[in-house]
Amino acid sequence: MKSSCRGSSLEPLLFTLPCIVMLGVFVYLPLIQNFYFSLYSFSAFSPNKLFIGLENYRLLVDDPVVRTALINNVRYAVISVLIQVCFGLVLAAILEDKSFKRVGPFFRTVFFMPVLMSISVVCLLFGFIYHPIDGLLNQFLEIVGLPFLQRPWLGSARTAIWATIAVSQWHSTGYIMMLFLVSIQKIPEELYEACELDGAHKITRFRVVTLPHVKEIFFVASVITVTGSFMVFSEPYILTRGGGPGTSSITMAVYLYQSGFFRDMMGYASTLAIVIFVISVVLAVFQAMVFRTGKE
């Protein structure tokens, strides 16, 4: 508290003022306005708003598309945790293993490269891969003699959502892998050596040494992926043209966008935003709790 007595009391305020103003006007004001907007019905191109009370919320409860969107977001979350986090960890452990020291950095860089591509480029690329007639995937299945597996990947309600989820895994697994890699590198070499002296198997070493050390980052990575799964927008927007066929691959973010800007229901879109907000608050609280346990 020593430093608090120097200078004018205005000075510290000046330092933080730009930050506070920016956050206030462009983050917190919109957040609050959302609650207000969700009680109205209005369109993007008219200045008049119609007060309808809780009508939007009633609509929301009955809306089957909201259910589809939430289920899809949950599917995203589950698959992403399994592949990006669990598989990403295994991948990092393999690449950091001594026997792969030579080739590790090479694979690491390659696996990380998709992360650096813009998601819209990735989605356009997968448009070519999933193309029903001339697409790489269906053509590949033809070549390897598995033509019965060919499908209109993005055109069938059964496969569209999974095909979309797969794109995210291709794009982001390298990111989580990199987080694990860095934290595995921080584990002191002696621990592994001690383990080796005991003649422990590699899988045992992974369980005994690696896992406890990456526990915290494992939780963090899980929270990041789950949070990200509830924000998915670009993949269904670009690949399945807004969550098609029908609404089978729609997500909350895409539905929010469509309601507000295509179906011209800005008030309802605000209500959907509140749902997303509640979900992110729950996740944040969960994260905070995990962090407390991580720090003990």
């Binding site: 919109p30 959302n34 935003a273 997303i276």
Partner: peptide, 15 residues
């Protein structure tokens, strides 16, 4: 930091 930017989309658009 926890806030999902999509939540602010509609009001931000108007602002």
């Amino acid at each position: 930091m926890m806030l999902n930017p999509q939540v602010c989309l509609i009001p931000l658009y108007r602002i």
